[in-house]
Design a protein around this nucleic acid. Sequence first.
DNA 1: TTAATAACCTACTAAATTAGTTGGTTATAT
DNA 2: ATATAACCAACTAATTTAGTAGGTTATTAA
Lengths: 166, 166
Amino acid sequence: MRLTTKGRYAVTAMLDLALHSDKGPVSLSDISARQGISLSYLEQLFAKLRKQSLVSSVRGPGGGYLLSRERCDIFVAQIVDAVNESVDATGCRGRSDCQGGTTCLTHHLWCDLSDQIHDFLSGISLEKLVQRKDVRLVAERQDSDIRQIDQSHDKDQDKISAALLG
Amino acid sequence: MRLTTKGRYAVTAMLDLALHSDKGPVSLSDISARQGISLSYLEQLFAKLRKQSLVSSVRGPGGGYLLSRERCDIFVAQIVDAVNESVDATGCRGRSDCQGGTTCLTHHLWCDLSDQIHDFLSGISLEKLVQRKDVRLVAERQDSDIRQIDQSHDKDQDKISAALLG
DNA sequence: TTAATAACCTACTAAATTAGTTGGTTATAT
DNA sequence: ATATAACCAACTAATTTAGTAGGTTATTAA
Ligand code: FES
Ligand code: FES
């Protein structure tokens, strides 16, 4: 079992998508800006998410990604599975053979733990996360931060236009 | 969060200790033979387990390691914590600062997951594991395997002795 | 039709971690 | 005295992570 930045990024990005895709596709550069995740890294993660048909893509300007199912039908466990190998805590991937073909002393413990984690993460849909107060608060802050950055970009653009016009 | 061979080895070795330390200290080479874990690697793990006072050591011939507390007072979570950083699933180690000093969108989810895993692994003592039927079965098989290897070593020794005596 | 956008794709890389190995020293029971 | 077994430090190969670099292809809008 491993749960690192990779899996956390994937869930964060999918949640961002769930929060912002009501008005059409969301581009990875938007997600990158809002969530502070490298664009190229996001591309790699979304290639995997697409392979698992968790998202679908729209190319060209105004394009981006959409959830390929309802928010209530996508679970955190599926997202982590899509980018990591699995949420499996055993060393034998359930095969009971990690001590030279035989069952190791702690096999059953890791099976139980795997079930525990899997049950927990399988019970949490994107819909459930979107509803949470803590998630909404963070999302609002991120959105207003982005609006401020956009405004300052607009000002920069005005300056450039003004300069070009002499 | 990471749960790899390292943490699994540590728990397996501690359980082996719990199963065999009733008649005095258990040497790492015994654990190595029974559990198929490299001796030098075990030494590194036990250095950490000793620092966390989960085991105490006896040097010299007949020496080895003992649990420094009752089996019912040592929990799987403590063992994993001792060799890994922690069973924490957050990227911020609870500090709520993983997105450039601010809370990321999924912080609370990973906190909940960490609690889930910690509660589970904190509820399982070595005593509980020792009592389990599946653990006893594997332990019995390992013990009889070792007895067979010892016997064949004895035969080898007999051959060597015989050869030396002419 | 052309320019901009944004997905898609491949290959490379620095840093960290894992799972060891090697080659010792120190303490102690017999 | 010797064998045992803990203790210790330094090195290593392989793997994984979290990226970067440098493209190509599809689509929209000016
Ligand atoms: S974890 Fe399954 S056999 Fe060891
Ligand atoms: S995991 Fe805690 S702030 Fe991101």
